[in-house]
Design a protein around this nucleic acid. Structure first.
Lengths: 216, 216
DNA sequence: CATCTAATTGACCAAATAGTCAATTATTTT
DNA sequence: AAAATAATTGACTATTTGGTCAATTAGATG
C-alpha cells in the first residue's frame, strides 16, 4: 500500500548507511512515547532519551515532530495492511471468518502498540487519517461486505448485516490490544501468554461463526 | 459509586451559587478538549476559550489542570456506572444479555465522549484509573462472570468463557462510540441517527445470543 | 590524499503554557 | 448597610519545549 499523502517528505530524503537503522530506532521510541503521552505530550527530548540519541540528532533525521508522527503512522498502517487477513470469495464464509479472526487476534497480541496508535488517532478524530479512511478503508469494507452479501444470497450463511459483522470482528479482536492494560488488570496478570492467542481466537471464532449460523 | 481517590480535592471545596454551573460548563469543555488534544495537548486556555470564560476563572474553580482532568474522569466513571446495565441471576441469560447490550449501545450512541475519554485513558496505560480497575472493575467482572457460569452449569446457555463474553459485549458496543469517526466515514454519513441505535442493538443481540446458543 | 557528503551534538532562542497574584466587582449574610 | 465571602479578570512569571545553527567528526569516493 502506498500512503502517498504521508510519504511526501520521506520520499525525497538522502540515504546514508546509518539512516535506516537510526530512523527505525527513533520510530519505535516515538511510538511508545506517543502512546504513553499523546502527540502533544510526547516531547522530542523524551523520544530522543528513549532512543538514546541527542535531541538534535533526532531532528536531523526527522525535520520536526510532525514528521516523526507521520513516520509512526505510516509504519502502523503498513503493518495493519500486511497483518489483516484477506477475505476471498473462494474461501467461503467459514474459512474466511476463521482466517480473518486469527490474523487480527495475532496482530493484536503481537503488536498491540500499532493498534493503540491507530485507535488513539481515530478517537481523536482521525486528523491525520481522514484521507486513508475515506478512500482505502471505505473501499476495503465495501468490497468485503459485498463478498459476505454474496454468501448470504447463496444461503451459505445467515442474513446478518455484513458491515456490522466486519465492525464486530474488528472491535472484538482489536480490544485485546487497545485495552490490554484493563484486561490484564481484570485478570490479575502481568502480561499476555502465548496460549492466550489460541484461546481468544477459538472463543471469538466459535461465537461469531455461531452468530452467522455456521457450524464451527 | 464513590471514587474517593479522586474526590479528595473536590470534597472540601467551598460552595457558592455559581460554582456548580460553572464547574459543569468547564468539565464539558474540558472533556471535548481532552479528547481532541489529549491531556497534555489541551491547554487551560483552550478549555477556557471553549467554556467562554477567562483562564484565571477556570483556575479559580479548579486549582490546576490535573484537577480538571480528575473531574472529567470522575464524571465519566459515574456515567459509566449509571449507564451500564446490570446482570441479574433472576433475569436468566437471554434477558440479561439483551438488557446489557441495549444499555451499552445506548450509552455509546448517546454519550460517545465519555466512552472516548475512558478508552484513551486505558490505552495510555490507565495512569489515573489503575486503582479503579484493580478494585471496582475486577470485582464487577468477576461477579458477573460467576452469574454466567451458573447459567452455563444449569445448561441454560452454551459453555462459553464468561470473561471473554463480557469483553466481547464490552468491545463490540463501545466500538460505536470510540470509533465513531471511522464508522461514519466508512458509511459516508455525517452523524448517527436515532434508528442506528435500534439497528445495532438488534444486530449485536442476535449475534451474541446465537453465539451463546440462545434463541433470539 | 583531498574533497564531498553524512552524521553528531552542545548551545541557543522564541513561543507556548501552567499557574500565581493582586485588585476589583458581585453577592450573601448578619 | 456593613462585613464577609464568592467570583472575576488582567498582568506577570518561571518553565518547558520545538526547532535552529554552527562547529566538529566520521565515512565515502574520486
Amino acid at each position: 500500500m502506498n500512503f502517498n499523502t504521508m510519504t511526501t517528505t520521506t520520499a525525497v530524503k538522502k540515504q546514508g548507511k546509518i539512516r535506516a537503522k537510526s530512523e527505525q530506532i527513533i520510530i519505535k521510541a516515538a511510538q511508545e512515547e506517543f502512546i504513553l503521552q499523546g502527540y502533544k505530550g510526547a516531547s522530542v527530548q523524551s523520544i530522543a532519551d528513549r532512543a538514546q540519541l541527542p535531541k538534535a540528532n533526532v531532528l536531523y533525521y526527522f525535520k520536526n515532530k510532525e514528521n516523526i508522527y507521520h513516520a509512526v503512522l505510516e509504519q502502523t498502517l503498513n503493518m495493519w495492511d500486511q497483518g489483516i487477513g484477506d477475505i476471498l470469495l473462494e474461501d467461503g464464509p467459514k474459512k474466511a471468518i476463521e482466517k480473518i479472526i486469527a490474523a487480527k487476534v495475532k496482530m493484536s497480541f503481537e503488536n498491540p502498540n500499532a493498534s493503540k496508535i491507530y485507535a488513539m488517532e481515530i478517537i481523536q478524530g482521525a486528523q491525520h487519517l481522514k484521507e486513508f479512511a475515506r478512500t482505502y478503508l471505505r473501499q476495503w469494507v465495501r468490497e468485503k461486505a459485498k463478498i459476505f452479501q454474496i454468501w448470504i444470497d447463496n444461503g451459505e450463511m445467515a442474513n446478518v448485516n455484513p458491515v456490522n459483522l466486519i465492525f464486530l470482528i474488528w472491535s472484538s479482536t482489536q480490544h485485546y490490544a487497545d485495552f490490554e492494560t484493563q484486561i490484564l488488570t481484570i485478570m490479575n496478570r502481568a502480561e499476555y501468554e502465548e496460549e492466550d492467542i489460541e484461546q481468544v481466537t477459538q472463543f471469538l471464532t466459535d461465537m461469531i461463526l455461531r452468530g452467522c449460523k455456521l457450524k464451527p
